[in-house]
Computed example of a mutant assay.
Amino acid sequence: MAIWTNLQHHLTLKTKKANLYSMAFTTFLCSVFYLIGIWQHGGVSTGATTSSSSTLPCNSTKNTNAHLSKPLDFNAHHTAEDLVPLVARVKHFPPCNPKFSEYTPCEHAKRSMKFDRNMLIYRQRHCPEKNELMKCRVPAPYGYTTPFRWPESRDSVWYANVPHKHLTVEKAGQNWVRFKGDRFRFPGGGTMFPRGADAYIDDIGKLINLRDGSIRTAIDTGCGVSIL
């Protein structure tokens, strides 16, 4: 038992000595690295301060005080007006003549009559050539009004935005569109929509995808009739 106690005491002393040696060695390394760092940065700062202060003129104190007494200026010395203006690279086209308020480049009636009537080619889309392009903004019809918001726009359109009554006369018996007051109204039904426009749209939806936005415009073309 006494041997075991002496052994434990010996191991404890040996461990303490080892820890002491480790601390001493670590302290020595830190001191060496610290001195090396001072040497690489030009020596001790006290010597640098002394050498630099010895070269100052006699009135250095007055100059320093004058510098410190100068008020600090926190005001901005540059404003937005000093910046170079940024010019947007946008081409501004002048408005077209009011007579072109309903001009559709690829559906020009007079130009279409110049094409062959065989196979109704003259009824197809014929976009203008480069020398026929109009570089101006097509104006809105006289009295143009902001369109109705959905869902009211489904049933009504301002007459001033589409000032033509041809369909209300030629297709009056089919109940497609009615002119009343200052607007066109679409009652639905008739020969094209016997079950209403909603049912007609549902039938088209069975043929093409109208739900995810991949198709924005659908044209149903029949015998002399097309529905947009």
Rank of each mutant, 00 (worst) to 15 (best):
M1S: 14
M1H: 15
A2Q: 13
I3F: 09
W4G: 09
W4I: 14
H9E: 13
L11M: 11
T12C: 08
K17A: 13
A18D: 06
Y21K: 05
Y21I: 10
F25Q: 15
F28T: 15
F28C: 11
H41L: 14
G43L: 02
V44K: 08
S45I: 12
S52K: 03
S52M: 06
S53R: 13
S53Y: 07
S54G: 03
L56H: 09
C58K: 14
N59V: 05
N59R: 10
S60Q: 11
S60G: 08
K62Q: 13
N63Y: 10
N63A: 10
L68I: 14
K70V: 09
N75W: 05
N75M: 07
A76N: 14
H77E: 11
E81M: 07
L86G: 05
A88W: 03
K91T: 05
F93N: 10
P95I: 02
K99Y: 08
S101P: 03
Y103W: 09
T104I: 15
P105M: 01
C106Y: 02
H108W: 08
A109V: 14
I121K: 11
L133Y: 03
L133E: 11
M134H: 14
M134Y: 09
M134A: 11
K135T: 10
C136F: 01
C136N: 04
V138N: 05
V138M: 04
A140V: 06
Y142C: 12
G143E: 05
Y144G: 03
P147G: 01
R149P: 12
R149T: 03
D155T: 13
D155F: 05
S156I: 07
W158T: 04
A160E: 15
A160R: 05
N161A: 01
N161V: 02
P163G: 02
H166A: 11
H166F: 13
L167P: 07
T168Q: 04
W176D: 07
V177W: 00
R178A: 12
G181K: 04
R183I: 02
G188M: 01
G188C: 02
G190K: 00
T191Y: 06
R195S: 07
R195W: 09
A199W: 05
I204P: 09
I208V: 15
L210R: 04
R211N: 13
D212Y: 03
G213A: 01
G213E: 00
I215D: 10
A218K: 08
I219V: 15
S226A: 12
